[in-house]
Simulated assay, not measured.
Amino acid sequence: MLYIGCHLSSSKGFAAMGRQALELGANTFQFFTRNPRGSRAKDLDPADAAALRDLLARHGFGPIVAHAPYTLNLCGAEEKNRIFARETMADDLARLEHVPGQYYNFHPGSHVGQGSETGIALIADGLNAILRPDQATTVLLETMAGKGSEVGGRFEELRAILDRVELSGKVGVCLDTCHVSDGGYDIVHDLDGVLTEFDSIIGLWRLKAIHLNDSKNPPGSRKDRHACLGEGTIGLEALGRIVRHPALKDLPFCLETPNDLPGYAREIALMREMAEA
């Protein structure tokens, strides 16, 4: 079964997102835990979380993906920014325990001139400070495009973080198709080769989710600009191979394309059709 959905607004609550996903033909979805450019989060309603748990179970959803705000930076140069990121992420993880068994995705961070080795160490330190042995949520490091001082543009950097995390079983990876293409991995012509490299460096067992996006940029551009499916440099043929690939087909796929809800519904239906081709 193809688990596919899109990014939805959490403004109306958990259960409302689940109902909206069903209307779009989705059986997973992604949402921001709070304002993606800020720090405020709505009070959590336990009854609303319970309603979502029931909906997910009744309709056979795959895991859903909560996305941390873009502003968080576990490897920021200033300690106050690193503390803010840790506290926010810890609060998010506590909230997600009301909908256990899901994923929490975040951008590893930008080392802002400190160097990638320092950035890797700080990210791992941040995760070690917030992960708990009894948590039900798996935290996902997202593959990045490698722009500026981003950490995570290479598989080796993600592996270096994972090697430093004490509770590494609580951490996985989310592969973003736009990011890895922009980062120089040839998923169009050599998907098998990229996945073999991922497996040898990180381990495919750690790959838990896919952000399914086309790219407005040529491969290796390190720019990170998402395009609607089939309207970028990756293209529908390659995206179809991704959703059909034996190593990926059972993972949750989340669209982050520049779309409105009807556009997401079309892309979800299109990918379902291509998954069966």
Score class of each variant (00 low, 15 high):
Gly146Ile: 05
His107Ala: 08
Gly62Trp: 02
Leu56Phe: 04
Leu96Gln: 02
Ala85Tyr: 01
Leu175Tyr: 03
Gln135Phe: 10
Arg58Met: 07
Gly146Met: 09
Arg82Asp: 00
Gly109Ala: 05
Lys147Glu: 04
Leu74Glu: 02
Gln135Thr: 15
Asn81Trp: 04
Asp163Trp: 13
Gly169Cys: 10
His98Glu: 07
Asp176Ile: 06
Ala160Leu: 09
Thr177Pro: 12
Cys75Asn: 03
Ser110Leu: 04
Ile64Trp: 04
Asp92Arg: 12
Leu74Lys: 03
Asp163Thr: 12
Gly126Ile: 01
Gly146Arg: 07
Tyr70Arg: 13
Leu93Ile: 10
Gly76Phe: 01
Asp182Glu: 03
Val99Pro: 01
Asp92Phe: 09
Phe106Val: 02
Gly152Cys: 10
Asp92Gly: 11
Ala68Leu: 12
Glu142Phe: 08
Gly113Tyr: 05
Arg95Ala: 11
Phe155His: 01
Ile64Arg: 05
Gly101Asp: 08
Ala90Ile: 11
Asn128Tyr: 10
Ala94Gln: 11
Lys80Gln: 05
Ala68Lys: 10
Leu122Pro: 01
Pro69Ala: 11
Lys147Trp: 04
Ala145Asp: 02
Pro100Tyr: 07
Ile123Met: 06
Leu55Val: 09
Ile161Pro: 00
Thr177Asn: 09
Val171Ala: 02
Val112Asp: 00
Phe155Arg: 08
Ala94Cys: 09
Ala129Tyr: 07
Glu156Asp: 10
Glu150Ala: 13
Leu158Lys: 01
Ala68Val: 11
Gly76Pro: 06
Ala90Arg: 13
Tyr104Ala: 06
Thr71Pro: 06
Arg86Gln: 07
Gly169Val: 11
Gly148Met: 14
Ile161Thr: 08
Ala77Glu: 10
Val180Arg: 08
His179Leu: 03
Thr71Lys: 15
Met89Gln: 07
Gly119Leu: 04
Val165Thr: 09
Asp163Arg: 15
Asn105Tyr: 07
Val99Cys: 13
Asp92Glu: 15
Val165Gly: 03
Val151Lys: 02
Val139Met: 04
Ala51Tyr: 07
His179Arg: 08
Glu87Lys: 14
Cys174Glu: 00
Glu97Met: 11
Arg82Ala: 02
Gly60Cys: 11
Gln114Arg: 12
Thr143Tyr: 07
Asp163His: 14
Gln114Ser: 12
Leu141Arg: 00
Glu142Cys: 06
His107Tyr: 08
Pro63Ile: 15
Val151Ala: 09
Glu97Pro: 13
Arg58Leu: 10
Leu74Cys: 03
Arg159Leu: 05
Phe61Tyr: 06
Glu142Tyr: 01
Phe84Cys: 05
Gln114Val: 03
Asp182Lys: 11
Leu122Ser: 03
Met89Thr: 05
Leu74Val: 05
Glu117Met: 14
Gly126His: 00
Arg86His: 00
Gln135Met: 15
Glu157Ala: 04
Thr88Asp: 09
Val171Asp: 00
Ala94Trp: 01
Thr177Gly: 14
Ile161Val: 15
Gly113Phe: 04
Gly172Glu: 03
Leu167Pro: 04
